[in-house]
């Protein structure tokens, strides 16, 4: 029989490294990632789950890590922006964002990259409409989006 507790020990594998920590049940996954593990690449841009700056991939599924408790991710495999590059070498999507000026302040970029990563995995050659739909959950306030669409298109070619 499972019991109700206000904190518990969890084990999460992030970008290949397994972390075991005691966390309060109320702690959001994004705060666990940023504050407890110091992986500050994922960001927070709202408090209603609208902006997507905290998007990460949990067990292969794109989620907003501010709408998930850390305890819900117990046992999960998580991918964040820090895991995209191969050493010092940017991956194709990161390079495409750079080439196409798909970022200005760069605050939404980690979440945007994770959404684009999930999109291209599921659909390696998305149409323009599919790219827009795949990024609908990520707000960018700098670029007006079009350079992001172009970057994702380029990375898919």
């Amino acid at each position: 029989m499972s019991t109700v507790t206000t904190s518990r020990s969890i084990k999460v594998t992030i970008n290949g490294t397994t972390y075991e920590r005691e966390v309060e049940a109320r702690k959001l996954l994004i705060h666990f990632i940023r504050d407890d593990l110091d992986l500050t690449g994922s960001h927070i841009g709202c408090d209603t789950g609208n902006c997507g700056a905290c998007s990460v991939i949990v067990d292969g599924s794109l989620v907003k890590s501010c709408m998930l408790l850390a305890v819900q991710a117990d046992g999960a495999t998580v991918e964040t922006v820090e895991g995209l590059a191969h050493g010092d070498e940017l991956n194709k999507l990161q390079q495409a964002f750079k080439d196409h000026h798909a970022l200005q302040c760069g605050y939404c970029t980690p979440g945007m990259l994770m959404s684009a990563t999930a999109l291209l995995r599921a659909n390696p050659h998305p149409s323009e409409d599919e790219i827009k739909k795949g990024l609908q959950g990520n707000i960018c306030r700098c670029t007006g989006y079009w350079n992001i669409f172009e970057a994702v298109k380029a990375a898919s070619e």
Partner: peptide, 20 residues
């Protein structure tokens, strides 16, 4: 249109924003 110097760190989540 020189590609931006800033981007290398930002696309890797290596920017340092105030909350970091």
């Amino acid at each position: 249109s020189v590609p931006r110097k800033e981007d290398r760190r930002l696309v890797q989540g290596q920017g340092v924003f105030v909350d970091d």
